[in-house]
Amino acid sequence: MKFWKLTARESAGVTASTESGERTYRVALIGDQGVVASMVQIRATDDDEACKKAKALVDGHAVDLWEGLRFVDHFPATDLSK
Rank of each mutant, 00 (worst) to 15 (best):
R70Y: 01
V72W: 06
M1T: 12
G13W: 04
D79E: 09
Q33P: 11
R43W: 05
K55M: 08
R70A: 06
T45R: 12
T7C: 02
F71M: 00
W66G: 01
Y25Q: 08
G60H: 05
L80T: 07
T7W: 04
F3N: 15
A50S: 05
S11Q: 14
E19N: 15
I42T: 01
A44V: 03
I30W: 07
G60V: 05
K82L: 00
K82D: 11
L29Q: 14
Q41H: 07
L65W: 00
S17L: 13
S20E: 14
A37E: 14
G68A: 12
A77H: 03
D32M: 15
K52H: 12
A62K: 00
T78S: 12
A54M: 05
L57D: 01
Y25W: 02
A54P: 08
A54W: 00
H74K: 12
E22H: 11
A12N: 14
W66D: 13
E22D: 13
T18H: 10
L6A: 02
Q33F: 06
G21D: 14
T18Q: 10
V40S: 08
Q41I: 10
M1K: 12
R23E: 10
A8W: 03
D47A: 12
A77L: 02
C51R: 12
V63W: 00
E49A: 15
D79I: 04
L57C: 11
R9D: 08
R23D: 03
Q33E: 15
I30C: 00
V36I: 14
F75E: 03
H61S: 11
H74F: 03
D59Y: 04
W4I: 13
K5G: 07
D47W: 00
A54F: 02
V40D: 05
F3K: 15
V63P: 02
T45E: 09
T7H: 02
A37K: 15
Q41C: 10
Q33W: 02
T45P: 05
S38P: 08
I30L: 10
R43S: 13
K53Q: 13
L69N: 10
R43F: 04
V14D: 13
L29P: 13
K5A: 09
D48K: 12
A54E: 02
D48Y: 04
D73K: 11
H74C: 06
D59E: 13
R43H: 11
K82P: 01
T7E: 01
K55E: 09
K52G: 14
L80H: 09
T18S: 14
A62E: 07
F75A: 06
D73F: 05
G34E: 01
F71S: 11
A16W: 05
T45F: 00
L65M: 08
V58T: 04
E67G: 13
D48V: 06
Q41V: 08
L65V: 07
L6K: 02
L57V: 02
D32A: 15
V14R: 12
L57N: 07
